[in-house]
């Protein structure tokens, strides 16, 4: 081989090796330290000398089948929560596309549920949410899409409980500014993970962590 072909040859071989190495990497990327239990996220409180972890407060909403949904509906389950609205043009379509993956993955596992809160409760009546859910082809028992409150109430509830962005902003579509987080909540209503619901790789990690949590004490 002359000098030039030799160089190209080496370049190509190293490229091929790098490619092979990247695609054989079987360990999926992890969001949280894989050697420790998933963290409990959120500010803890000290009451009577005892430390209380951050917990989602009790709630009562109405879902797409006009059923009342409360924290009791999720007893013994872990669930993934997010905040959206049916006509949101920017991030919600991506969030829905990704949440459908969670829905499908755990369709047969009763220990897992999804709770999507509408941030546009006046427009998103149970009927509108039902049409949305039907078009997505999802089951109410697995994925509750809820409404039945004031916009200001749900913004506040989302911020203080799920630590997500949800507020009025005249520059955002419909005046609703919100983040695309998927929040993983365990059966004690502690937050155990936060994932960007618009990014497929983050939702890979969420699905991975749900399985982990199910194997541990969830």
């Amino acid at each position: 081989m002359n000098n030039f072909t030799e160089k190209i040859f080496l370049l190509v071989v190293s490229l091929l090796l790098a490619f092979a190495g990247a695609s054989c990497n079987s360990q999926p990327p992890q969001k949280y330290d894989p050697n420790k239990p998933l963290p409990v996220i959120g500010p803890s409180k000290r009451v009577d000398g005892k430390v209380l972890t951050h917990q989602i407060e009790p709630f009562s909403f109405v879902d797409q089948d006009s059923n009342i949904v409360t924290e009791k509906s999720f007893e013994g389950k872990l669930f993934v929560a997010d905040f959206f609205f049916s006509t949101c043009p920017d991030i919600c379509p991506k969030m829905s596309q990704q949440m459908v993956r969670v829905h499908d993955e755990f369709l047969k596992d009763e220990r897992v549920a999804i709770l999507s809160h509408s941030l546009d409760p006046a427009y998103d009546t149970p009927k509108v949410l039902k049409e949305y859910a039907t078009a997505l082809g999802v089951e109410t028992q697995k994925w509750h899409m809820v409404t039945g409150y004031e916009r200001s109430e749900i913004n506040k509830f989302g911020q203080s409980n799920y630590l997500v962005t949800a507020m009025e902003d005249s520059n955002a579509p419909k005046g609703i500014l919100h983040g695309g987080n998927f929040v993983l909540v365990d059966k004690n209503r502690n937050i155990r993970g936060m994932y960007d619901g618009t990014i497929a790789e983050e939702v890979d990690m969420l699905i991975h962590d749900i399985k982990r949590l199910l194997n541990e004490e969830y």
């Binding site: 081989m1 072909t5 190209i8 040859f9 370049l11 190509v12 071989v13 490229l15 091929l16 490619f19």
Partner: peptide, 11 residues
């Protein structure tokens, strides 16, 4: 080397 080179190019 040529098959590998080809594979590399395709890649």
């Amino acid at each position: 080397a040529w098959p590998i080179l080809l594979a590399g190019l395709i890649f």
